[in-house]
């Protein structure tokens, strides 16, 4: 029971819910950029939440199945096809031994999750099957898939039901301009009051340099710094700090010009100041942003960040119940 990769797509990796516990040594969480979409895809094929699936960016792979399987595609609107016949997204469908799964053009969002009943059974590395390409770790040989790769599948955990679907109101395919809620803090005190206002007033656009490590944004006004003598060891640029840890979702602004929001494959630390952190509830949204899409940042306090977290947990529970 295996998947034969005929065409890899642009960058398709094996991802689960990640590899916590090694960030203090520079190994990031990794795992699905859009965790909700991964969990939804797994639910549709009767997998556990954290089973490994494929994350395809912008363009789908082409895969031949060696045995009958139940598959579901969620996340970005990337229409799946079985031997050329289009299948619905957010709904489980059957694929027979020898048939080929391929994809049409991306309609919305950025990352599609392709779950197969039983899960992708690559070896566990440090407790996860997620791929961390920068460290050549996990997934299939520590890298994005190539043509000719063969991925084993695990045994189905429960009997999957083709036709199971996520009701349209509970889907989040991406594609809309977003508002990202951010808790200001960390080194927020380094910028002027006016710069702080501009940051939230300005409309930002996703830059082409947007990947699993971080999403870069452009188009807003540069941030002005409050003057200070740089502390010993920090480096000479006003945006430099003595190299520190970087929270997931933290917003660093090298040189004060282009904010970068760190994501699942975050660099664990470095010497650029950060003005705050995007709340955990909104990180999935970032994973579905395409270059040139617009985003605004909105300041929130801890209470609102936690309310947003509860709201997402409730929505996910509702989704799983509906499936």
């Amino acid at each position: 029971m295996a998947l034969e990769i005929l065409k890899p797509g642009l960058s398709t990796t094996v991802q689960d819910l990640g590899r916590p516990g090694y960030y203090h040594l520079g190994i990031p969480l990794s795992g699905a950029m859009d965790r909700e979409a991964l969990i939804a895809a797994n639910a549709l094929v009767a997998n556990d939440d954290g089973d490994a699936a494929l994350e395809a960016v912008f363009m789908g792979p082409e895969i031949r199945f060696t045995a009958d399987a139940v598959v579901a595609v969620t996340g970005a609107e990337l229409p799946p096809k079985v031997d050329g016949v289009e299948q619905p997204t957010w709904q489980a469908f059957l694929i027979k031994a020898g048939q080929v799964l391929s994809f049409g053009f991306l309609k919305a969002g950025a990352r599609a999750y392709i779950a197969v009943a039983g899960g992708i059974d690559v070896p566990m590395v440090l407790g996860s099957r997620s791929t961390y390409p920068l460290g050549a770790l996990g997934g299939h040989e520590g890298r994005a898939l190539k043509a000719g790769d063969v991925l084993p599948l695990g045994p189905a955990r429960r009997k999957p039901k083709p036709g199971a679907l996520v009701p349209p109101g509970l889907r989040r395919p991406g594609g809309r301009d977003v508002e990202l809620r951010m808790l200001p803090g960390l080194y927020w005190h380094r910028i002027t009051e006016a710069a702080g206002r501009h940051f939230f007033d300005d409309v930002w656009k996703v830059a082409p340099e947007a990947d699993r490590i971080g999403y870069r944004f452009r188009g807003g006004r540069p941030l002005d710094f409050l003057p200070r003598e740089q502390p010993f060891g920090a480096g000479s640029d006003p945006s430099n700090i003595v190299d520190s840890c970087y929270p997931y979702g933290s917003v660093q602004v090298p040189g004060g010009t282009e904010p970068i929001v760190l994501h699942r494959d975050a660099v664990s630390g470095g010497g650029y100041f950060m003005i705050g952190t995007v709340v955990s509830a909104d990180l999935d949204l970032i994973g579905q942003l395409q270059p040139h899409q617009q985003a605004r940042f909105r300041a929130v306090e801890m209470a609102e960040a936690l309310a947003a977290r509860r709201e997402r947990a409730a929505a996910l529970a509702k989704l799983k119940a509906a499936v």
Partner: peptide, 14 residues
């Protein structure tokens, strides 16, 4: 650092 991290700066300089 958002709703999942506490960041602690012991000193500004190294």
């Amino acid at each position: 650092g958002g709703d999942e991290h506490i960041f602690v700066e012991v000193a500004e300089e190294m």
